[in-house]
Write a protein that binds this DNA or RNA. Structure first.
Lengths: 245, 245
DNA sequence: CTGGTTCTTTGCGCTGGCGCAAATACTGAA
DNA sequence: TTCAGTATTTGCGCCAGCGCAAAGAACCAG
């Protein structure tokens, strides 16, 4: 791939990419080159996984391109989606702290490419560039705050609001403006949304149908377009229904 | 307090205490002394708080004595308990990563004493002893895993199992053996348990009553004794009910 | 175009657990 | 001991959302 480009050009591009990654923010050019030199890449087709729950946690990944779903299955076989991650985000961060195994499965939901560093390499990099460790701490902190707020939602809020919030979050991270509204840029089934919000696909389907009737969204097979974000926010915030504009 | 002891003896004791704290594990004697020298203490009566949700996040705490409840309230006023922490555990760890405000309230549920370090002091300590940063990363990772598993429970399991698990976790962290079984070493109301497991005090009360009838526990006002831990595990694991021994 | 696969929709019945409300039971202070 | 305040228990009605089931609809491969 990137046929015709010199190795040097490729490295430049990689550094460019890494400079936009949270985990490496604030690093000097040379530090980034150091990180880039140690990076390896892995491509996955839609549906294929970068690692599965229970694998030895040996690598830390950063998404170069595409989108990844991180999910867990319980002992009883229930599945839940931990998060969706897109370009520049890291996943499989277990090696950053002591974990032995990945507690979740990471799979590509569109053809994706990820950069990765083995645990030992990452340890060495963090040692050489402590800033990475500090960034990692910060990212983990943010993640913790996010999970806590999702927990709080799950504990105290009705399904409809949870779905609305999840959708709004996804729009924020992966929304693309189209003529009629904003669409989620990756295939997302009712089942996915249910696993993300702790409910069933039936309930999600009913909710989306009702929103569609109210003109809030338009949806098809694994495809959702938000027509009236304002209205969806009303649902998420539990204001009385109001067409907005 | 510790009247009659010399300053040196007090420092010794403090170092002793800190050596058992996860955040400072693996530090040399001199490093611990460094940490101890920078520590300050704060005492709180039952019910009083170390900080409240929304306060500027300026301090990192470690419990020297007593027990602390960390809880959040939602915009709608629902309360949830994030965790209970006991001796040697840290709380208010927001300053470790970039957070501006505490996202939760930490209050003493029994008379408690905490050590604390201001954010700037902690930054300096981490700089001088990088091991602290690594430990912090590890602890945050564990916390993240714990919250995720609680999230998973909430998303996929029935109330009774969640309550059973919460109780077993508390026993592990704060169980004291008494003649009839194991008791939770701090006052815990039905309401508390409900907020910890994402349900209502009514439901918790009904569940505890049924367990009491089955001889699994014995409980009173803010007091719970597990008579048959094995049986409680069966409930948590959803095995068919079985008296065990 | 066809047949198979995967997603989605919808009806229907049921129930776990919430919410309200009222009756007790504890506990600590005076 | 009594009283006030706080915790707990329990009955009752209700409904959000689950689970099942079956019928569409969209997509893909050949």
């Amino acid at each position: 791939m990137t046929k015709g480009k010199s190795v040097i050009e490729e490295k430049k591009e990689l550094v460019q990419l890494l400079s936009g990654v949270q985990l490496f923010k604030g690093l000097s050019e040379t530090a980034l080159e150091d990180v880039a030199a140690a990076a390896q890449t892995l491509d996955r087709e839609e549906g294929a996984s970068f690692f599965v729950q229970g694998d030895a946690a040996t690598r830390l990944f950063v998404i170069a391109d595409g989108r990844v779903k991180v999910s867990q299955v319980t002992a009883e076989g229930h599945q839940i989606v931990v998060r969706y991650a897109g370009g520049g985000e890291m996943f499989g961060c277990v090696p950053l702290y002591g974990g032995e195994e990945y507690p979740a499965t990471a799979s590509a939901i569109v053809p994706s490419r990820a950069l990765y560093w083995s645990r030992s390499v990452m340890d060495r990099l963090m040692e050489r560039h402590p800033r990475i460790a500090i960034n990692a701490l910060e990212l983990l902190g943010e993640e913790l705050a996010l999970v806590r707020s999702r927990y709080q939602e799950l504990a105290t809020e009705r399904v409809e609001r949870r779905v609305a919030r999840a959708l709004l979050r996804l729009v924020g991270k992966a929304g693309r403006k189209v003529e009629k509204g904003v669409m989620i840029r990756f295939p997302l089934s009712r089942q996915d949304l249910a696993e993300l919000t702790g409910t069933t696909l039936h309930t999600v389907s009913r909710i989306l149908s009702s929103w569609e009737q109210r003109g809030l969204i338009e949806s098809g097979r694994r495809r959702i377009v938000i027509l009236n974000p304002h209205g969806l926010v009303s649902v998420a915030e539990d204001l009385e229904f109001d067409d907005g504009d």
